[in-house]
Design a binder for these strands. Structure first.
Length: 835
RNA sequence: GCCGAAGUGGCGGAACUGGUAGACGCGCUACGUUCAGGACGUAGUGCCCGAAAGGGCGUGUGGGUUCAAAUCCCACCUUCGGCACCA
């Protein structure tokens, strides 16, 4: 692991002159110069190591994790600053509450973006990536995160990917890795495998050639074996509900029936899965996915040309297009028999059926499925109602009826309700041997192989005698060789295949000549375990030290983007569970608490390279300083919702920090003045402590900052501040604006550092409001607002309300039939005139 | 198409468990300060009628429940995010 270089601040950039005049004529303090003070404290924090907890001795460990960035050549994105600031504020808050906070950072640096960018710039990724990382480090330091730089992790470092390979080997040894044929997207012109995002409207993004598919031998991890546990544990873990829902849907466990229809004049049959056994009597046709292996077998000679053309067309569409466009299909010429009613049903091919879902074939029940209904209408196929809608007249349906109901046209099952009928039909089919109850999952196994250069080499050697053999652990890492020509090779192999010294290897098992695997790993594997490595960086004989792991994990708080809801977060859970089962770690869920933050958008659109609307934080660091940018990003919207970035509102936050500076300048000048601490001021302070503390815990940073602004206005109005107010306000602001608060903390004569000082505690009695405003309504309309003592009973509140002249006027001539009192909130007089 | 989230002033956004809609900030207006000025201070600022007092309307649209709805229910519209080789 590399240790981060000290930032060099040879020159200080003067801040914009927004405040040039503010303090002219004021002596001593000078004006707020964010660039000066930020440079000063960056250095001081680094040299004193206040963000580097002693991992072995820490008494109250708190592992505060954020999603490590992908170091692109464009530099740190303002969205990264947004996400990391949100996580950092929480870490700073926990540290001030007395925890030993470990907030590591690293770089997820393998992958297609780096490879493609390197190709474009004609710079080798081994040169480009360190350059990008260096730039990112500087930017990350500029934003003022409390990062433990001595534990930096870089996934492209052999000292790291050695253990990524070790994980691959463990999974392989435990039967959780398998190799099989699977289709990839292929550009016939570039002669290369394409990623999904490189395909636009069925064409290669570079050469606009229509893409095709190829079957290649690929490695998979058997995540589906963990489907039930991954699903069931979701009920227990403290994660953002939205993410848990996304994972549940992704895993997609459904219970139903798997059954087969024999094909006429053939020895084969079609197997499909259905969650609606109650509708089997309504099957009027079947549909196979275009990729289904039976298609070639059963198509009649007459239909063959049409089918072949249709299948070729379908292969060009994406799964999303196939499900969004108008239903299309072609009849194969073959028929199957419904074993329940002996009905003859035509077999079609339709691209709305996906080979990756279920068995790649469906029984079509147009009366009770909207997609099948549309298909039947288009091709004039019969629609048989077998579940009667509530007031069905026996006639034709205008649209599919997909709800449960009473069975009709279903022989012996007529009159039964859907749920009972499903069970009865399953039992009948099970005893007849033509179907069985089945749990089905949407989740598919994890495709690990990439036919690319810039990734972790898969640590496997293929031997003709022994088959695939894992590289012995002592031989790891399998180092990614330097390949000058790292562009895709025009074969379906990784560029590594063109390096004979790499490919040639002796079989670790029998010693004969063998071939090294040349595909590299999906970089989701790199990022599936990085949090396990952070505490153990520098340890080179094991991936993670058991002692440190036990002390620091599972992670206490993980904050990251919703875009990682299923892939990264599910793969990470899977790897953790697998390592647990193999006995390497004691826990099976990696993160105690996970919170998803929102997406930062620009003028209503997501920032992306393709739109060209990426905003760099660098200009803001220079013009306003990191404190202003951090605070503004957190103030502009609810952290968990995300929001719009505009540089309109940033000035408001900049002014706020200037006013804070001024407030303390005045305070310092008046040193020695007897400030006093009136009760109202104490109450305001404790209310603010309570509000800010609660809001940070809930990640409601925007309202915490609003409360601090409000409180600062109150402080500005006081002639002088007490010592307690002076320190408390700075402490509450410190997680958001770590630099200015550290500077002012020093200037008011407190000991370094504010960031290790104790978070203020709210005095509940003082935080409580003494007087409350109570709305007085008449028939639900607010007519007056009265001030009464907090906690007043109904009698007192109603009496006070009736004192109001306005209320009296509105009640004049009306009879109150009902009075509603919500303590400390409102009184409502309901009158007889009410409607 | 499927899954998820969200629609509140001119703008970003607040609003506990159904209980004063619009906190805080931007912008705008007026006044003050300043040689001048992007600056700073004070006050005002949802919309409509009104000189004011006051009144009416108002949280995407239409309906409903309730003494009371941004919040709950039903239907619809729009936007954003995800859909397995982007990370």
């Amino acid at each position: 692991m590399t240790s981060a270089p000290r930032p060099q601040h040879t020159e200080t950039i003067r801040t914009s002159s927004i405040c040039k005049r503010i303090d002219e004529g004021r002596s001593g303090m000078g004006r707020y110069e964010p660039n000066e003070i930020e440079a000063k404290w960056r250095e001081r924090w680094a040299s004193t190591g206040i963000y580097e907890p002693d991992l072995h001795a820490a008494r109250r460990p708190f592992y505060n994790l954020l999603m490590f960035p992908y170091p692109s050549a464009e530099g740190l994105h303002i969205g990264n600053v947004y996400a990391f600031t949100g996580a950092d504020i929480y870490g700073r808050f926990k540290a001030m509450q007395g925890h030993d906070v470990f907030e590591p950072i690293g770089f997820d640096a393998f992958g297609m973006h780096s490879e493609n960018f390197a190709l474009k710039q004609n710079v080798h990724p081994t040169k480009l990536v360190p350059r990008n990382i260096k730039n990112f480090r500087e930017q990350l330091k500029a934003m003022g995160g409390r990062f433990a730089w001595s534990h930096e992790v870089v996934t492209t470092d052999p000292a790291y990917y050695r253990w990524t390979q070790w994980i691959f080997v463990q999974l392989f040894k435990h039967g959780l890795a398998e190799k099989r044929l699977a289709p990839v997207t292929w550009c016939p012109s570039c002669k290369t495998v394409l990623a999904d995002e490189q395909v636009i409207n069925g064409e290669c993004e570079r050469c606009s050639t229509e893409v095709t598919h190829r079957d290649l031998e690929q490695w998979f991890f058997k995540i589906t074996q963990y489907a039930d546990r991954l699903l069931n544990n979701l009920d227990e873990i403290d994660w953002t509900e939205e993410i848990k829902t996304a994972q549940r849907n992704w895993i997609g466990r459904t219970e139903g029936l798997e059954m087969t229809f024999p094909i006429e004049e053939s020895s084969t049959s079609v197997t499909f899965f259905t969650t609606r056994p109650d509708t089997i009597f309504g099957v009027t046709f079947m549909v196979l996915a275009p990729e289904h292996p039976l298609v070639k077998q059963i198509t009649s000679e007459e239909q063959r040309p049409a089918i072949e053309q249709y299948v070729a067309e379908a292969m060009k569409k994406t799964a999303i297009e196939r499900q969004s466009m108008e239903r299309s299909g072609v009849f194969t010429g073959a028929y199957a028999t419904n074993p329940l009613n002996q009905q003859r049903v035509p077999i079609w091919v339709g691209d709305y059926v996906l080979s990756t879902v279920g068995t790649g074939a469906i029984m079509a029940v147009p009366a009770h499925d909207t997609r099948d209904f549309a298909f039947a209408q288009r091709f004039e196929l019969p629609i048989t109602v077998v579940v009667a809608p509530p007031d069905w007249d026996g006639g034709e349906l205008a649209e599919a009826y997909t709800e449960p109901g009473t069975l009709a046209n279903s022989g012996e099952f007529d009159g039964m309700e859907s749920a009972a009928a499903s069970q009865a039909i399953i039992e009948k089919l099970e005893s007849a041997g033509s179907g069985k109850r089945q749990m089905q999952y949407r989740l598919r196994n994890w495709l690990i192989s990439r036919q690319r250069y810039w990734g972790t080499p898969i640590p496997i050697i293929h031997c003709d005698e022994c088959g695939p053999v894992a590289v012995p652990e002592d031989d790891l890492p399998v180092v990614l060789p330097y390949v000058e020509e790292f562009r895709p090779t025009g074969t379906n192999q990784s560029p590594l295949a063109s390096v004979p010294e790499f490919v040639q290897a002796a079989c670790p098992s029998c010693g004969k000549d063998a071939r090294r695997e040349t595909d590299v790993c999906d970089n989701f594997l790199d990022s599936s375990w990085y949090f396990l490595r952070y505490p153990s960086t520098g340890i080179d004989d094991k991936p993670f030290d058991p002692e440190l792991t036990k002390r620091w994990l599972p992670v206490h708080n993980y904050i990251g983007g919703k875009e990682h809801a299923v892939l990264h977060l599910l793969y990470t859970r899977f790897i953790t569970m697998a390592l647990h089962d193999m006995g390497f770690i004691e826990f099976e869920e990696p993160f105690r608490r996970f919170r998803a933050h929102g997406v930062l958008i620009l003028e209503g659109a997501k920032m992306s390279k393709s739109r060209g609307n990426i905003v760099s934080p660098d200009d803001f660091f220079k013009s306003h300083g990191a404190d202003t940018l951090r605070t503004y990003l957190m103030f502009a919207s609810r952290f968990e919702e995300g929001g719009d970035f505009s540089n309109q509102g940033i000035e408001g936050v900049f002014r706020f920090l200037h006013r804070v500076w001024e407030l303390y300048a005045r305070q310092i000048e008046q040193a020695g003045a007897d400030a006093g601490f009136p009760i109202e001021a104490q109450q305001a302070m404790h209310r603010t402590i309570k509000k800010v503390t609660g809001d940070i815990e809930d990640l409601k940073y925007n309202t915490a900052i609003a409360a601090l602004m409000e409180y600062s206005h109150k402080l500005q109005k006081r002639p002088a501040l007490s010592a307690e107010e002076t320190t408390t306000f700075l402490q509450l602001l410190a997680p958001f604006a770590p630099f200015i608060t550290e500077e002012l903390w020093e200037r008011i004569g407190r000991d370094y550092s504010i960031h290790t000082s104790a978070w203020p505690l709210a005095d509940e009695a003082l935080a409580k409001l003494q007087e409350v405003s109570v709305a007085v309504q008449i028939d639900g309309r607010t007519r007056d607002v009265i001030e009464i003592e907090a906690g007043s009973d109904e009698e007192a509140a109603v009496a006070a309300a009736k004192q109001s002249a306005r209320v009296q006027r509105h009640l004049d001539g009306l009879a109150v039939v009902k009075t509603i009192y919500v303590p400390d909130r409102m009184v409502n007089f309901v009158t007889s005139s009410k409607r």
